[in-house]
């Protein structure tokens, strides 16, 4: 095989796309030629799923690349949805702007706390998650808030070029922008360096602290704007509605090749992870697999990826073989 092609196939970014192939084949086999899978409407549906999970997964994934962990993204999507719905009745753009600014500020604050007080980002953002969830209940009075602008709800969901919607176009744009920044700018390089070895980056002259604050601000912004759009699309916001975004976001980032120890992973890979999960869900729904079995499917994929990631797998195998060969005296 061409060395370059084999390099691409072995890269961690390619993994979700490679895993997608057998999954698609499996779903097609279950479909058994009834034509429920390969349709424009299922492509649309996959991209709608992508738009729901994508920004949150990207937000979390970017913090993971910087060797941090932003758990607050789940609370952020919820809370931002409530903010947008409450502020965006007159002007929907104002709602999104309010949500985005809130995300940026809260994210930056969490990053600042992490750096200034040398907190673990898991602890700091777990606090953020709970605080945002609580704040959601406060501003909505613990009730689902309807969004009276049905025109906006229809607009963000209506198909563009058959398979896209405004929401999915936004999500895809954030991924493209993040990919370009990581690949071609000094900020991207410094972010990867910070995640790869924070001390080494600092010694080299990278402002590692600033990178961490920045990545948390961006994470907050992405999760918030994504959440605002989701709330618009369902014409409602509830403080409890979206708490189930965290697990898919983590799963997508890990499947997409983001390393838990930082420094590795790309937006392209995370996008692949999100796409894979969306395909899995949509495909399984299309062929009539019940939701509980869908979770099982996702779980198996994640488990397989975790196994493939195990750095010491070779050593363990070696040990097992050796113990198998001869028992020590």
């Amino acid at each position: 095989m061409d060395a370059r092609l084999s390099g691409v196939l072995k890269s961690r970014d390619a993994r979700p796309y490679l895993v997608a192939v057998p999954i698609l084949l499996a779903v097609l086999a279950i479909d058994h030629g009834q034509g429920r899978v390969l349709t424009l409407s299922s492509a649309f549906s996959v991209l709608q799923q992508f738009a729901t999970i994508g920004p949150t997964a990207l937000a979390l994934g970017l913090t993971m690349i910087a060797r941090e962990f932003d758990l607050s993204v789940a609370g952020m999507t919820n809370f931002a949805g409530c903010v947008a719905v409450l502020c965006g009745v007159q002007d929907p753009l104002l709602g999104i702007l309010a949500a985005g600014c809130m995300g940026l500020v809260v994210g930056a604050a969490q990053g600042f706390l992490t750096i200034a007080l040398r907190l673990s980002s898991v602890a700091a953002t777990l606090g953020g998650l709970l605080t945002l969830a609580g704040a959601g209940y406060v501003i909505t009075g613990n009730a689902t808030v309807g969004y009276p602008r049905m025109d906006v709800a229809l607009m963000v969901n209506s198909p563009v070029l058959a398979i896209f919607s405004l929401r999915s176009i936004f999500a895809l744009t954030t991924f493209v922008a993040a990919a370009l920044i990581l690949a071609y700018t000094r900020i991207g390089r410094d972010l990867i360096a910070t995640g790869s070895d924070p001390q080494a980056a600092r010694v080299a002259g990278v402002r590692a602290g600033l990178m961490v604050v920045g990545v948390f601000a961006v994470s907050g912004f992405l999760a918030a704007t994504g959440g605002a759009l989701v709330s618009y699309s369902i014409a409602a916001a509830s403080p409890a509605a979206l708490t189930n975004t965290l697990i898919p976001a983590v799963a997508a980032a890990i499947i997409g090749g983001v390393s838990l120890s930082g420094g590795r992973g790309t937006p392209l890979g995370i996008a692949g992870g999100v796409l894979l999960l969306s395909m899995l869900r949509t495909g399984m729904s299309a062929v009539g697999i019940p939701p509980f079995a869908q979770d099982l499917g996702t779980g198996i994929v994640l488990f397989a990826v975790a196994l493939a990631d195990a750095e010491h797998l070779r050593m363990r195998f070696y040990e097992l073989q050796r113990i198998g060969r001869k028992r020590p005296a």
Partner: peptide
């Protein structure tokens, strides 16, 4: 103590942290 970042390329490591690197660093 070595202060190279294993996840970056040789080029990126050589220019890492330099005040001379422009925004588009390649």
């Amino acid at each position: 103590e070595l202060s190279v970042c294993p996840d970056l390329s040789v080029y990126d490591n050589i220019w890492l942290g330099s005040v001379e690197t422009p925004f588009f660093h390649k």
